[in-house]
Design a protein around this nucleic acid. Structure first.
Lengths: 149, 149
DNA sequence: TGAAATTTGTACGTATGTATA
DNA sequence: ATATACATACGTACAAATTTC
């Protein structure tokens, strides 16, 4: 059984701290997500609710959510809300001696084209004699021991 | 010899377009960087200069720069400016059969701790009998064919 | 089906703080 | 020490997508 932290919502923003408000809120929300208080797939409070709850501007709330999006922790849909991203199962990809994998961030165009969320890196897999394969890097893990070419 | 596009700076923002102003500016700057007009290591115009040059608010300029930072294309230092990131040489890492590599985005704390720029993914390398190794994913490329454990 | 309310996105503004040149 | 440049934090207004009624 998983215990839910009962004080999560009571964590306060400290305006005297040197830590920016949006970083403080991002930390609070990240902790709540990790603790299971905000489960994968669930919707976060609205930006307006977060602003009034924590006593900061909507601008600061949006910056906090942008931080979490860039980490791939949450995903926001216009008119709908912000949801906790369900981290996919990583399927194993075995690399042979001639194979090569390069990791980089996608451009917004690539994100739209491939249908990949913000904050998710890209894995470019090059195998000799085959066209490059591009996959979201959060869906895979790499090992050696693949068949040699 | 590399040709430099002489019209790069004349590309205009289209206010009638449905494409947001900050996305348009990010596209313009990305093109200028790729074309070599803004070379690696060079400093971009200041936020104020970009705002007046392209006739948009500093807010929109900052959003455009945030997009490019999240792609690992540029890097901003407070009081100093925004520079084109020099993409590092990728050193090759060979994976053995028991090794495992997972890619994810770092938290801001990890970024500060490891000294890694915004928009750079993290590679977590697990080898049997060794502690996990964490490296910026833009400094490496992976292949199979490593020594088995 | 359609209208209204909700919710996020864009775009602008101001003021002030902080790091760098 | 001053000026420059980026960062934070608040505000307003309206647009656009979704949900609700």
């Amino acid at each position: 059984m998983r215990l839910v932290c009962p004080y999560a919502a009571r964590v306060e923003i400290n305006r005297r701290s040197y830590v920016p408000l949006h970083i403080q809120l991002a930390d609070i929300l990240r902790r709540r997500i990790r603790a299971g208080d905000l489960a994968a797939g669930s919707t976060l409070p609205t930006e307006h609710q977060l602003a009034t709850t924590y006593g900061i501007s909507r601008d600061s709330v949006r910056k906090a959510l942008a931080v979490l999006r860039s980490e791939g922790v949450v995903m926001t849909t216009r008119g709908e809300g912000t949801r906790v991203r369900a981290v996919p199962e990583r399927r194993r990809i075995a690399l042979g001696p001639g194979d090569e994998v390069v990791i980089r961030m996608p451009t917004p165009e690539e994100r739209a084209e491939i249908g990949i969320d913000e904050g998710v890196p890209l894995a470019v897999i090059s195998r000799p004699g085959e066209p490059d394969e591009i996959v979201p890097a959060d869906e895979v893990k790499f090992t050696g021991g693949g068949a040699p070419q």
